[in-house]
């Protein structure tokens, strides 16, 4: 099993990566590109698990080299768990990527990073409800202070693939979605 760390650029993903992995980090170049990515190991229930910091991407319909690499890496690692790092203060944009990943059938965990910034901007997210709707674990984190990471790691094993229809249903059905 591998864990892929995915998210938009500038959501604190590299700090996030550093909080999760050890000191031995490999910076590599994706073959045939100039796109760099980081690889490290984290400990999950007594096992070493490879953690890959996938280059930042806004969506899975690639518009630049970094996004191309992100899509390729996702395709190459069918058996991995995806940790989607979202900027909690701009949750809609992040959810787009998260939904795309879930649609492709990957087990995912959603990390609402920069939680402190969101709180600061008076944005309040009902984590439990979001978790119920998405059907995947959702954890608020603040990478800079290390808050929430313990919980995040403990939730990784709960990640399971979710059918998109199910999400639509728990969000209130397709028709009403179209109406609103």
């Amino acid at each position: 099993m591998k864990i892929l760390l995915m998210g938009h650029p500038n959501v604190g993903k590299s700090v996030f990566f550093n909080r999760l992995t050890g000191a031995k980090v490999l910076e590599s170049n994706y073959p045939g590109t100039t796109v760099d990515f980081m690889k490290g190991w984290m400990r999950l229930e007594g096992e070493d698990v490879e953690l890959i910091d996938v280059p930042g991407a806004f969506s899975l319909e690639p518009k630049d080299r970094a996004e191309e690499v992100a899509v390729k890496m996702l395709a190459e690692n069918k058996d991995s768990v995806i940790v989607c790092v979202l900027d909690a203060s701009k949750i809609e944009r992040g959810l787009y990527l998260a939904l795309e990943i879930i649609e492709k059938g990957y087990p995912a965990v959603v990390a609402l990073n920069m939680w402190d910034v969101a709180e600061d901007k008076n944005i309040r997210i009902d984590v439990e409800k979001l978790e119920r709707i998405l059907g995947v674990p959702v954890v608020p984190t603040t990478a800079i202070s290390g808050e929430g990471f313990k919980e995040l790691v403990s939730k990784i094993k709960e990640a399971a693939p979710v059918k998109i229809e199910k999400i639509i249903e728990s969000a209130g059905g397709r028709e009403s979605a179209a109406v609103s």
Partner: peptide
């Protein structure tokens, strides 16, 4: 897979139910 619009609709629905402004 959903279309781009359908996906945004879904996100809109989700965020309306879970995100609140100015609470804390």
């Amino acid at each position: 897979p959903l279309s781009v619009d359908a996906r945004w609709d879904l996100i809109d629905k989700i965020s309306k139910q879970t995100v609140e402004f100015g609470a804390r």
